[in-house]
Design a protein around this nucleic acid. Structure first.
Lengths: 150, 150
DNA sequence: CTTGACTCCGTAGTTAGGTACGGCCCTTAA
DNA sequence: TTAAGGGCCGTACCTAACTACGGAGTCAAG
């Protein structure tokens, strides 16, 4: 009763039908049950999955990474993978924090830019690139002792 | 004196030489001055630019978008563009906030996952996809009155 | 019971973003 | 002064992630 054709989930998730077939081949979407005719029958849930993929792509995850993220939930098969799951999840959290930090800096730089524009003062050198100035708050790391970089 | 060859900035920014030439062609890096021999001479600043591009790519910006971001600083030519600059900057801020929000949700979901793993309770259905459940805190928008989506 | 929209599949083509090649010239340290 | 290691250029190639095609079977509204 609550099953959808590929065309319907495509419209709901705002992706192409071919894209869904592609994700299927790549293992991001499970192979759904079929009618006798061969038509795919998707559960509602698949729409969420597609939306998740879309959003995750927007924040720079590759399909490979997104697949890993999605698999983090289905780690039920063997309980021994719990540590692995935790490890991978922690890696992803680190990725996410790094991305968030960059976004925070970029937002600050852009807000500053907008403010200076509002104040009728067009900053001659807007601070987008300053995003990186702060990259190493202390100069402890990267002493650049590499002699090949003459 | 403070000029670098393409190989040196490539090593400093940890990108390939060919990539730099490619960015040059695409207009993300200005054409630098040359020696009589034709060798490119880059200022230190170019390294920051390359690092910025790298980081911006990691958070899902395309090269086209990154170019726009970089151009937001050099809006000095005509003061009349101030409004345009502000408009574009505000759009980018909105993009950034949307990305940040998705990252915040994903991080929360993963932290929850790690916590439940730690507690020796492997959640049977980990909450990665719940990221989307909250997508519309109120159900006001998207009434889905489209009759073609039968 | 037909007709127009939908779906099937395999395969080929496309775009973004690099990456490699190769023949030749330049630089620099021994 | 020479040889190893850059660097120059144009062009060709590559991977990821789609996107399109086409011929044949299916569904459902009228």
């Amino acid at each position: 009763m609550e099953s959808l054709t590929i065309g319907k989930i495509a419209r709901r998730a705002e992706v192409g039908i071919e894209t869904i077939r592609f994700y299927q081949r790549e293992g991001l979407i499970d192979e759904p049950p079929r009618r006798e005719s061969g038509y795919r029958q998707y559960p509602e849930e698949t729409v969420s999955r597609l939306l998740f993929i879309k959003r995750a792509k927007e924040i720079g995850f590759t399909l490979r990474e997104i697949k890993e993220l999605l698999e983090l939930q289905i780690a039920s098969p063997s309980t021994s993978t719990c540590d692995e799951v935790r490890k991978l999840a922690e890696e992803k959290i680190a990725d996410i924090r790094s991305k968030t930090e960059m976004l925070r800096r970029m937002e600050a730089a852009l807000v500053e830019l907008v403010d200076s524009c509002r104040g009728r003062v067009v900053a001659n050198s807007c601070p987008i690139l300053d995003v990186l100035q702060e990259e190493k708050p202390d100069g402890a790391k990267e002493i650049e002792s590499n002699p090949s970089d003459k």
